[in-house]
Design a protein around this nucleic acid. Sequence first.
RNA 1: CGGGGUGUAGCGCAGUCUGGAUAGCGCGCAUGGUUUGGGACCAUGAGGUCGGCGGUUCGAAUCCGCCCACCCCGACCA
Length: 569
Amino acid sequence: MRLSNLFGKTLRETPSEAENISHQLLLRAGMISQVAAGVYSYLPLGWRALKKVENIIREEMDRIGAQELLMPVLQPLELWQGTGRDLSFGKSLFTLKDRRERRLVLGPTHEEVITQLVRQNVQSHRDLPLLLYQIQTKFRDEPRPRGGLMRVREFTMKDLYSLDADEEGLDKTYKSVIGAYQNIFARSGLSTVMVEADSGAIGGKDSHEFMVIAPSGEDEVIYCSSCKYAANAEKAQDLKGRMNEEEPLPIEEVETPRIKTIDELSGFLNIPKSKTLKAVFYSADEELVFVAIRGDLEVNETKLRNALRCHELRLASEEEVMRAGLFAGSASPLGITGIKRVADDSITTGSNLVAGANKPDTHLKNVNYPRDFDVDLVLDIALAQAGQGCPKCGERLLSTQGIEVGHVFKLGTIFSETLGASYLDRDGKKRPIVMGCYGIGVGRLLAAAIEQNHDEKGIIWPIPIAPYNIYLCALSIESEEVASASERLYEELQEGGFEVLFDDRVESAGVKFNDADLLGIPIRLTMSPRTLKSQAVELKLRWKNQAELVPLEEVSDRLEKNIRGGFTA
RNA sequence: CGGGGUGUAGCGCAGUCUGGAUAGCGCGCAUGGUUUGGGACCAUGAGGUCGGCGGUUCGAAUCCGCCCACCCCGACCA
């Protein structure tokens, strides 16, 4: 490709709307262009890089025996009503009507469609196991698209679905997909961490995410440096620390004028926060829920949502709390009736806690569970925090930000049972197909690769996903000598099968070098009257400072060796 | 959806508070010339519904109202 013909221009200044690095560099390099919030065009260079990633994915998918197919973006709403996911996706689902007023959705994912497809095509255990995938555009009406390609409303996703006869089969498949994913990310030049993930309200057994550690990441990862434990913060557990077991004392009322928060309470009574009991009210699908947790901990709303199996969860308003006859600020688990009560298991470890008295300016001392109150549900709903103990080994947990580039998920039989996808086993018995689903956000992977591979000059593409491998930079191209020699080299390299971006523009050296750096092409070959004096070109790797002269007749061999063998930083 | 911000040429911005003449600057773009190994210089030039609609006014980029778009924080987000 000649740079003089390339569509897409580099920008000297960063467009003001771009906040994170990958967004800035993608815009400045002329690789993407925004159309609307969370909607982008890929320009030729960006599109080439995206296709590189797609092809790596295809190779690794095919290697584990997965078959590529293509399912539609346009899907009937009834299909989604069949699984109830029209409700769980809620407003994130793009919907539309056709001319006959039939309601359709733009697919945010394809479990429903694949399950229906499989139902029509799989009848016997002989058809299993099966791995099917596609690379397709997904639509999600995100509440807040952000960060360039990080979170968009229309995006390319590779989604793979596994169909197995039983759980053992699924476990095996799951492992093999994880291996493929690790290959994909490694080959794309990304370093990722696999973390335990929330499997959502629909249940399912295991779920893991592949995180690219980067400060711009939207997800918090809780991990342990001494064992392998790592989890998305919304899934993570920690040791809540056992409190000293004390002899339960009789309940005592204390005056606590204008004391509302746990901080104020612990300060006023001069006790640690862990000796208090926090009461929080949530509205779960518009139903008031009372939540109790030890005062030093915070509620993990993802865990709570899963426990309650609800779609919408939010903090209840003060008015809603009062309407139920309770006092926010000194609400009490004692004597509470008529609403659902959930408690974190931390309340079972403390004793003689201070809790609300359910009247203004009053708290109760020496509250003990289960002596003094009862709840409907006790389970872990606490937010794990860095600094606390690792649930596996007890060491202190750490926290970092990550970009979720992949997600693997054991679905089990939820979809196959709901939509009736079953097979006959060896004994002629009908069984539901056991499913798994596995996604990679292709555009997000591209952005993450930039977050991880750049410097102050621009992108540093890993060779396997670079839009072009070689930037042929002809300086003083208006001289006949350079013009003809660079044209010859350009042709020769192309004939040799190299992907070359030929900077044939009449521009100063500075402009060309800066563009080469910004675009992040891994190998730069510079030809100028100076290098031609010794019948050579200068070869420089994007991630190194040093350049070297390579004789013209050795260029092809040298590139061949290095690209196949891989340059290393 | 709540909070904050921005909208003026392809990009980055000034001008808006305090209304006034052909709406400016830098980059980029075009043409010509001089340059040529890390974003050159000179000259000439093209390019604007000042986000939209309505209002106030002799006069609106500027004041008022409504709306729209985009960004950030949060809520939300298989």
